[in-house]
């Protein structure tokens, strides 16, 4: 468990890379119940004008906070978590889409001993989640 007193705004607390494959999308569809075919069928994605099969935004959101939870050691310390979906993550039929997550301290609240952790989530040099922030209890 990280020590609140040892944190400064701007500190990087976690960094991790992830590989999202079609296999990941099928697995997330099953776990979440979101079976929209744009997340596993090229023909359907194409027919609705998408650049390809996309990762569920909620999958990207779900993955992006994991480095923070690993740092905390406890998912129960997350007080809130919000993101904006700014760009899609296109997942090829074979091989992975590579997602990178960098987590930094964005703000500290001495009174409640809470830290706001800001996430920079990128795919192919683009930020895919905007205003991606979580408040955690320390």
């Amino acid at each position: 468990m990280p020590d609140f007193a040892g944190l400064n705004v701007g500190d990087q607390v976690a960094e991790q890379n992830f590989e999202i494959t079609r296999d990941s999308l099928v697995r997330y569809a099953g776990a979440s119940g979101d079976f929209n075919p744009i997340h596993y069928r090229d023909d359907v994605a194409q027919a609705v004008g998408l650049p390809g099969v996309l990762a569920h935004g909620m999958l990207t959101m779900g993955i992006a906070i994991q480095p923070v939870i690993q740092w905390l050691g406890d998912a129960g310390k997350v007080v809130d978590y919000g993101v904006r979906f700014t760009k899609p993550v296109v997942v090829p039929a074979a091989g992975p889409a590579k997602l990178s997550v960098v987590a930094k301290v964005g703000a500290l609240d001495e009174e409640t001993s809470r830290a706001r952790i800001d996430l920079i989530v990128s795919f192919e040099e683009n930020t895919v989640l905007g205003k991606s922030q979580t408040w955690v209890q320390l």
Binding site: Y28, A31, L59, G62, Q66, G73, A75
Partner: peptide, 11 residues
Amino acid sequence: EFARATMAGEA
């Protein structure tokens, strides 16, 4: 199941 699907760790 949900944790594995979102690439969660031991926590």
